[in-house]
């Protein structure tokens, strides 16, 4: 058995050499960005500035994972936008609920004194 002729063109054909340069480049970028995050975590005092740096670095990491590893950068334009645009709703929810949390905190600390 297992000596079928159909589809055998792939078995007999020469397997091309791996093209992994871009993959390892993305890997080193991700490791570098993570190392940078740890550097800031231990050398900088906590605060809005440090949080902003963390969020920016996170967005960069997310970009490299989605664009290169998930290959979205090389897909059709309509697919890229179908994935990106709905995520604006997440940003909206974030802004709305963070404001809500701050308002709640203000209320319980100041209004019921």
């Amino acid at each position: 058995m297992a000596h079928h002729i159909e589809n055998d063109f792939q078995q007999t054909a020469e397997i091309p050499k791996p093209q992994t340069k871009a993959i390892w480049r993305t890997f080193f970028i991700l490791v570098g960005l993570t190392a940078l995050e740890f550097l800031f975590a231990f050398t900088m005092d906590a605060g809005t500035a440090r949080n902003a740096i963390f969020i920016i670095l996170t967005i960069f990491k997310a970009f490299y994972i989605v664009a290169e590893f998930m290959h979205l950068k090389h897909e059709a334009k309509s697919l890229i936008w179908s994935i990106i645009i709905p995520l604006a709703l997440v940003v909206w929810l974030m802004v709305a609920l963070l404001a809500e949390g701050s308002y709640y905190y203000e209320s319980i600390t100041n209004y019921f004194k």
Binding site: V90, L93, M94, L98, G101, Y104, Y105, I108
Partner: peptide, 14 residues
């Protein structure tokens, strides 16, 4: 996203 945003909401409320 909802999970992490609720984390943010809770943190702002504490």
């Amino acid at each position: 996203g909802a999970f992490l945003i609720v984390y943010g909401l809770t943190r702002h409320a504490h």
